[in-house]
Design a protein around this nucleic acid. Structure first.
Lengths: 135, 135
DNA sequence: TTGTCTGCAAAACATTTGCATACTG
DNA sequence: CAGTATGCAAATGTTTTGCAGACAA
C-alpha cells in the first residue's frame, strides 16, 4: 500500500519527513535506532533534525505503525510489526535477528486472568551461530 | 540459602554492600531500579553511593544472579530470575506484574536453527484489570 | 602489600522540552 | 488565518568513567 495512504488511515498527516522515515524503516529491516535513521536520511533531507526523527517515531509508535525493540540496549531500536515474530540478540556480537514463526500467539487465557494483552514482545538472548564457532 | 554462600558460589565476594543489594532484590519483588535500591538502602548504609549500586548490579547481572527487565522504560529495572515467568506491563498505570506459569519454555528447536538460547524474556503490554475499569 | 571495593565528581550520551519559525489546509 | 510540523539550543536524567582512598585476603 502507498505509505501516504497508510499514514492517512492511521490519522497521521503524510508529510515528506514522515513518509521518508516510515519507508526507511520498511525497507531497512535491521531495527535501526533514531540516530541511525537520522544519519541515513540526512543526505536526502539535509535539514532533518534529530528532534523531528524522535517526534515522528513517537507518533508512529503511538499510532501503532511502529514498535520499539527493548533489547538490553541504551539506544532504542525500532521495527515495523508486520507479522508476528520474535527477536534474538547475540550477547557476543550484539546483532539482533528476527525469528520468524516464533511468537507467543496462543496464550492460555486463564493464565492471564484479567489482563488484557495488546502486544507481546519475546526476545531470546544467547549466541548466534557465528559466535558459537569463535567461542 | 545464605546469600553469603550463594554469592561465593558465583564467584562474588560477599561484601556487606553486595549482600544487602542482593537481599533487597530478593525480598522486594517489585523490580526496583538502581535508584530505588539506592534510596531504600541509604538509611541503612548511609555512605552507599549510586556508583556502587550500579557496580554491584552489573556484577550480579554478569554472573547471572540478576536480570534486567527491559520493559519500555528509561530506568532499567532488576529482577531475580528464580523461576521462569513472564512480565506484564500496564500501559496506563505503568505497573509491572509477574505472570507466573507463563513462559516460552519449550521452543521448538528447529525453529531456532542454530541459535543457542541462554535466556528468554517475554513481556506483555496492555491494560491491567484495574485500568480496564477506569478506561 | 597487593589487589579488590567503594565513592566522589565529572563526563557521556540518548532523549525531551521550550520556544520560535515555517508549512499547510 | 489557524493549527500543525519542524528545528534549534538548552535541559534532563540515567548511567558510565577516572581516579583516589578504604578495605580485605
Amino acid at each position: 500500500m502507498e505509505t501516504t495512504q497508510l499514514l492517512r488511515e492511521y490519522d497521521i498527516r503524510p508529510s515528506f519527513t514522515r513518509v521518508s522515515i516510515y519507508e526507511y524503516l520498511k525497507s531497512h529491516r535491521v531495527h535501526p535506532s533514531a540516530e541511525d535513521i537520522h544519519r541515513a536520511l540526512s543526505p536526502t533531507i539535509p535539514t532533518l533534525s534529530r528532534t523531528t526523527v524522535y517526534n515522528t517515531l513517537h507518533l508512529l509508535v503511538q499510532k501503532q505503525l511502529v514498535t520499539t525493540l527493548d533489547v538490553e540496549e541504551e539506544q532504542q531500536r525500532y521495527d515495523i510489526p508486520d507479522h508476528p515474530h520474535a527477536h534474538f540478540k547475540c550477547r557476543k556480537c550484539k546483532a539482533v535477528y528476527d525469528l520468524e514463526d516464533v511468537h507467543p500467539s496462543n496464550i492460555p487465557q486463564d493464565k492471564l486472568n484479567g489482563f488484557r494483552v495488546e502486544e507481546a514482545k519475546l526476545v531470546y538472548y544467547g549466541l548466534c551461530p557465528d559466535c558459537q564457532q569463535t567461542a
